[in-house]
């Protein structure tokens, strides 16, 4: 996750390098915070499994999709 992304509790994201803003839901916010703290996608998955009532196969698919979106919005560094 790019370090300079500004994040607020309302789920509002601002990328100061591009000027784009985004909105995410509470679980999205959790994931982005974890990624920003340096967790790997695997560690994020574990964290979500511990916090939310969800099956692993489902979060695996949804998390993959979410991270793809973060990448397509260029909110993540190339190394993930």
């Amino acid at each position: 996750m790019k370090k300079n992304i500004a994040l607020s509790d309302t789920g509002f994201l601002f990328n100061p390098s591009t000027g784009d803003s985004y909105s995410t839901n509470p679980i999205g916010l959790d994931i982005i915070r974890e990624l920003k703290d340096g967790s790997s996608p695997k560690e994020v998955l574990k964290f979500i499994l511990g916090k939310y009532e969800v099956e692993e196969s489902r979060i695996e698919k949804d998390l993959g999709d979410f991270i793809d979106m973060l990448k397509s919005f260029q909110l993540m560094d190339n190394n993930g």
């Binding site: 803003s21 985004y22 995410t24 679980i27 959790d30 511990g50 916090k51 979410f66 919005f73």
Partner: peptide, 19 residues
């Protein structure tokens, strides 16, 4: 107890209509 799951979503705020 665990929180009810909803899949993560992120949307770009297009200037203008957020509605």
């Amino acid at each position: 107890s665990k929180i009810i799951y909803e899949r993560p979503v992120i949307t770009k705020l297009n200037t203008g209509i957020s509605n």
